[in-house]
Design a protein around this nucleic acid. Structure first.
Ligand code: FES
Ligand code: FES
Lengths: 144, 144
DNA sequence: TTTAATTCGGATATTTTTATCTTATTTATT
DNA sequence: AATAAATAAGATAAAAATATCCGAATTAAA
């Protein structure tokens, strides 16, 4: 469904969000530890998230990554997925035709469209605040 | 969502089904032509489908691939997807945790579970006969 | 001003997926 | 028996995804 990079990105964002709510910046090392991911690869992904304006970074001592508190509830999963995996998942053809279209549909178009829309709705309506809260209250987990 | 191999497999199966209904066997070359895929790679995928008993193959002159007419309506997309991509898509964690579980859920577990189930229902309830008919009647297309 | 801690960027390495090539084997027809 | 047409199987290649490494730039604090 999502690329490994995207899975890491989502989990990383949740952890950063959770920390940011507590006014704490975090380093790639801390993130990797918390979400059980390779450090350097995670750092690369964080750079992409910064470029896409989903996460803020601060260099030097006492630096690290954070998400502005006010924005935590505004950042949806779909934004993160788009930033890392692009939007093929939201508008691409399920069978890999060059484009998904009503006028030249693939055999599974009608079925697939529904799933795709449901997925988008879901990712649109799920934000980092909700997810961070789930972790905070011990209802869900970022690693095994 | 699906791997390239799986996309090819689904399209190939639809074409083979359509041909089988007309009592015609098809070669990898014909399949590749029809679904716009690399021949040799497609041939490899056909082998996997044969191993998984979804498609029958016949060597030698007048050989090729076919699906027993009676089985066309019994073969669902989920069987094809399982054969090529495995069942991670049906029961794996959306964020890549080792296992998806109610007692140790990832942050998106509840949301993701719904999508996953909807997808499975859909793939379970869609069979090759329906899809081949769509192609046959010009309602859908296997390539751009 | 030095130091330590940090992100950034580019180069490189490894693994997986996608794709190709080549040879062997099977089979119907001639 | 020979031939031609086909799948099977294994080796190899190319591309993409995943992962690592290292040096440069930045920054707060000592
Ligand atoms: S054309 Fe394939 S999903 Fe729309
Ligand atoms: S634990 Fe992640 S989807 Fe169920």
């Amino acid at each position: 469904m999502f690329s490994k990079a995207c899975e890491y990105a989502i989990k990383a964002c949740i952890f950063v969000a959770q920390s940011s709510i507590r006014n704490e910046r975090v380093t790639p090392k801390q993130i990797a530890e918390e979400i059980n991911s390779p450090v350097a690869f995670t750092a690369k992904i964080m750079q992409q998230l910064v470029k896409n304006n989903l996460v803020s970074s601060y260099r030097g001592a006492y630096g690290g990554f954070e998400i502005e508190k006010d924005r935590v509830a505004q950042i949806s999963l779909s934004q993160i997925v788009s930033a890392i995996d692009g939007d093929k998942i939201f508008n691409g053809c399920g069978l890999g035709l060059d484009a998904c279209s009503e006028s030249h549909p693939c055999p599974v178009h009608h079925q697939y469209k529904t799933i795709r829309q449901d997925l988008q709705k879901l990712l649109d309506s799920t934000n980092l605040k909700q997810l961070a809260l789930g972790i905070e209250t011990g209802l869900s987990y970022l690693k095994t």
